[in-house]
Structure formats: C-alpha cells, structure tokens
Design a binder for these strands. Sequence first.
DNA 1: GTTATTACTTGCATATTACAAGTGATACCA
DNA 2: TGGTATCACTTGTAATATGCAAGTAATAAC
Lengths: 147, 147
Amino acid sequence: MVTTSGPLRSHCPINFGLEIFGDKWTLLVLRDLLLKGKRSFKEFQSSEEGIASNILAERLARLERTGLVTSARVESDSRQIHYLPTTDCRALLPLLVEMAYWGARHDPRTAAPEDFVQAYERDRDALVLAMAEVGAQSAGAAQSVRE
Amino acid sequence: MVTTSGPLRSHCPINFGLEIFGDKWTLLVLRDLLLKGKRSFKEFQSSEEGIASNILAERLARLERTGLVTSARVESDSRQIHYLPTTDCRALLPLLVEMAYWGARHDPRTAAPEDFVQAYERDRDALVLAMAEVGAQSAGAAQSVRE
DNA sequence: GTTATTACTTGCATATTACAAGTGATACCA
DNA sequence: TGGTATCACTTGTAATATGCAAGTAATAAC
C-alpha cells in the first residue's frame, strides 16, 4: 500500500504521483533502483547527477514510509543496507520508460543509446518487460530469501 | 525545439525531463493544458490544487522559454492571453496517461473515474489518442488560425 | 589495535515556495 | 464618459527546502 504523509492537495491521479515523486531527486533514485539495479546508499550517491547525502537519506526514508522501498541489512556485511523496490514501485517502470523516451527524443544531446528509441518504437511493451529484469530483485523476493 | 536554461546535471533522458518538469507544479499546468484544455491564466489558477499566482506566472514563462508552450493575446478580449501546447508538449501525453494510471491504481481515494482504468487496460494507445483530443488545439494550429 | 568503509547526521548559507496584497491595462455598463 | 470589474500579473516577506562541507557511530579489514 502506498501512503502519503500529510493531506493531499487533491486526489487527481496525476497529482497523487506528484505528491510522492514530484521533485528533482526522487525519480532519479527510483531510476537507479528500477533501471540500474542499484541497492546501497553508496551506489545511489555515486550517480553522475551528484545527490547530496542528506537529501538522499531523506528521500530513501520518505520512499520507505510511502511504501515504495524496503530496506534490509546485508547479511555478509552488516554495515551495508540494501534498498529494494516494492511491487508498487515496480509499477512505475512504464512511467520511467515513457519519460526516458520523451527525453531521448527531445534532448539533442541525449545520452540515451539510439537502440533504446528504436526498441521503444518497435515494441514498447517488450521493452518495458526487458527493462524490468534489471531491477528485478523486488522487496518480496528478497524477503523470501531472508526468511 | 526544447531548450533548458542552465547546464544540465546529466544527459540521462530521465534527468532531462526532470530538469524541465521535475517539481510539484509544472506537470499540473501541463495536465490542465493537455488533458483539461485550459488556456488562460485564470483557468490554470482555478485548479483545485491552488497554485499561487506568482508560481503560475513563473512556470508559464519558463515553459514558454523551454519551448513547451506558446502564448498569444486573445483577439476578442485583449486582456486575455491564451497559452497553447507545442508539438513537443503534446508528446508528453503518454507520460501523463501513465502517471494517471499509476495514481488511479495506487491512491485508494483516487478521483479518477473507474472507466479510465478500464479503458487503459483495454487499449492504452486508443486511450491516449482519445485524450489527445481534449487539448487538441496546438500552438501550430492556433498559429495557422492567427495568420 | 589501527585504519578504512558505510550510512548516515549536523550546521549553516542559499534558493525556492507560499501567502497576502497591490498594480496596470483593458473591458463592461449606466 | 466615468465608475466598476476583470485579467494577468508583480511585489514583499515569511516559511520551507536544498546544497555544501564537515563530522560521527558502527562495523569490517588488516
């Protein structure tokens, strides 16, 4: 279940999303989580956009409260915490793909590989499925591993 | 052509979008423009989320600079200015639909009508096409009318 | 036992947003 | 033709969020 902290400005479905990830950083964290398979604080921090550690910590905590992320200490190294996407989080993948497609088509200096655009235009649903595998380890799956 | 003002944090296609509409208000303006067919300052201001007039003015100016919106004085009432989506802006419609679908599915109190979810699940592309008609009057179309 | 690594926290400067009120240009109406 | 209303903003100021640099506690590695 996805829950927001305070009262919402409205229950417009677009606004609902904005209240959760409508800022400059949250969707980048979700991108790293869902598309790049990042799991640890350090990995998120290493992204080229350069998120500040206090912002990252606050966003991860918020995503966990919201229900899009779960966290678990790594068994082999108890200093580390792994952040994992929930099912509700993985449902954001099509949105990220749409966003990436728009960006790839409209940024003249885009870093997106050309075959991403081609793959989207050939078969969007297949592309979404293929990209899902990168961030495949879900909170549920990890839970069953831990238990 | 879509242009950003300053230097970008990265040319990741997802980040490109975030640099343009990665805040709490811009996508609501685009929603009103593309999905609700709103055109005037007053109409945007009347949305239930309650955007402040200075924020709205700044966002409209920024969207115009970016190339997602054009503005034109209304012939029949020269106090009014109409803001219109460009082609690049209308390309954001699939993204808005994805966002609305996620919100409709995950907000237990969503205001989205049930048949929106059904229409999406039945035929997403048809739904996008149908929704495009609401905000159909594009900057290009308006231009050809004015000239 | 010393040093390194990981995930943060803290303090403070700067930037962004929110709220309330005001302004100038144009339209409407008697 | 003069007064009032409407429209698209602007201005000032308080509150909030972000960005940056440095520091800390817990654990691991040597």
